[in-house]
């Protein structure tokens, strides 16, 4: 049995809109092993993005426990500042996040973006160019984000994430705004690299084909429907 990278127990999160309490995630429990991939599916508004935010500490849960790489984060416990700092450290060095778009700093070139991310994570920025080459956009290194296509920008985003040598990648519909062909290419690269560097991957997606590429499937829509 692979060592557990992430264990989630009894995780709950609700939002308050107006005077109504909207439960988004209720008593969610699952584990993810090192290098494993998990697809997060569910209809729109089912809480995929919210869960990803919880898993990297950008939101805090109402109840439950998250154990990430042996660090235990318990909901509601005191020491919020220490928790925030611990999450920030994890995000800087261990957890790579890819959004549907706007993953790059617009004022930096693709190469500078990768370097920036690598250096923040404390990795050697000298490899940055290699990462761009590995993602097939080596010749675009000196371009700015607005000078390349959407698919190329997502490749650059992946280059940034891999350059930090993460333990876990959280991808929120990373190909959501790409055409099918490009989406398929980008997904292929993502899976390849994830397998090669053995990092965990949680992928929120509407795309059944994409979800099928993952080892596990978590259907939030189904869960909340039950």
């Amino acid at each position: 049995m692979t060592e557990s990278l992430l264990a989630v127990r009894g995780l709950s999160k609700h939002f308050v809109s107006g005077n109504e309490t909207v439960p988004v995630i209720e008593k969610l429990t699952f584990t993810l092993g090192q290098g494993q991939s998990l697809a997060l599916v569910g209809r729109s508004g089912s809480g995929k993005s919210t869960l990803l935010n919880l898993l990297c500490g950008l939101e805090s849960p109402d109840a439950g426990t998250i154990v990430m790489q042996g660090q235990v984060f318990e909901a509601g416990s005191a020491a919020t500042r220490e928790k925030a700092a611990a999450w920030a450290d994890l995000r800087r060095q261990q957890i790579g996040v890819v959004f549907q778009e706007a993953n790059l700093m617009p004022a930096l070139t693709l190469l500078e973006n990768v370097r920036f991310r690598a250096q923040l994570a404390g990795r050697d920025p000298a490899n940055s160019e290699d990462w761009l080459t590995r993602l097939d956009i080596g010749e675009l290194a000196q371009r700015y984000p607005d000078q390349v296509s959407g698919g190329q920008r997502q490749r650059a985003a992946l280059a940034m994430v891999f350059s930090m040598e993460p333990a876990l990648i959280l991808a929120d519909e990373p190909t959501g705004s790409l055409d099918r062909q490009t989406a398929a290419e980008v997904t292929q690269v993502l899976f390849d690299l994830q397998a090669r560097y053995r990092c965990g991957l949680i992928l929120a997606t509407h795309d059944a084909e994409l979800a099928a590429g993952c080892q596990q499937l978590l259907d939030l829509g189904h869960m909340s429907a039950v």
Binding site: E59, E101, L104, P106, A107, Y144, P145, D146, V148, G150
Partner: peptide
């Protein structure tokens, strides 16, 4: 603010620089 939206239409084209 807890959630900052990627509001601007320009985000779709890589952001203004």
């Amino acid at each position: 603010k807890p959630s900052v939206a990627r509001v601007s239409a320009s985000a779709l084209t890589g952001g203004e620089r």
